[in-house]
Amino acid sequence: MTNIGTIYKKEILSFFNSPVAYITIIVFLLINSWFFTSTFFLINQSDLRQLFSLAPLTFLFFVPAITMSLVAKEKNDGTLEFLTTMPISDTEIIVGKFLSAVSLLSTALLFTLIHFLTLMIVGTNIDIGSLISGYLGLIILGAAYTSIGIFASTITENQITSFIISFLIIFIFFILNKILILVPDFLTSIIQYISIDYHLSNISKGVIDTRNIIYFGSIITFFLMLSTRILEMRKWR
């Protein structure tokens, strides 16, 4: 456990030692603000769902950008040999890195609270309950994306390749719900269950049920375990 903390701290430090953290937070905030305010003034209405439908789309770009270096760069620089020959398990390495990326993403996300504060100041009525569950849903979604990003980062030494692979996998999960009309009837419920969107729409409506939690939990566990296996595979090449 302490090892996970050590890795976590190291990654957070390196996020903030490099421009990655700042660029992520600022660009994320700018994009979201731009969409948010433009639709806000356009339709002249305030709606939580603006952000909650937009953020998953921005995550599609940001998560691969945050995670692409996490393992791939260590492979490329040779530091993975240094790290994996320390008394620390591959699982601890993966989980530590995963948590650090989720934290960075959550931090960027929480900055968007500014919008809602603004809205509240100008007197708009906002349901705190659904605000919290909406943010929670986005963080869980971001964590699921991040586990995919970590996986992509373990299978290559090249950060750009890592970016593209995680982007593609996340994209598939992302559009599944949107192609439902194209699939035969008997498959729809399965596809729907696999689709990230479907579960997210529940959560952002303020409904967090165990099925959603199990769903996201399984994605995260699956991809983190897969990443660990891939790290271990170096031994048997």
Binding site: T6, K9, K10, L13, S14, F82, P87
Partner: peptide, 28 residues
């Protein structure tokens, strides 16, 4: 074991002190 791998891979962006502290932490 103490191990100095070939080509001496190190975390370049880290300060020496932080790096050694990081190693000490992993080494518990």
């Amino acid at each position: 074991i103490g191990y100095l791998a070939e080509h001496n891979p190190l975390y370049d962006e880290m300060v020496v002190y932080d790096f050694l502290e990081f190693v000490a932490n992993i080494r518990q």
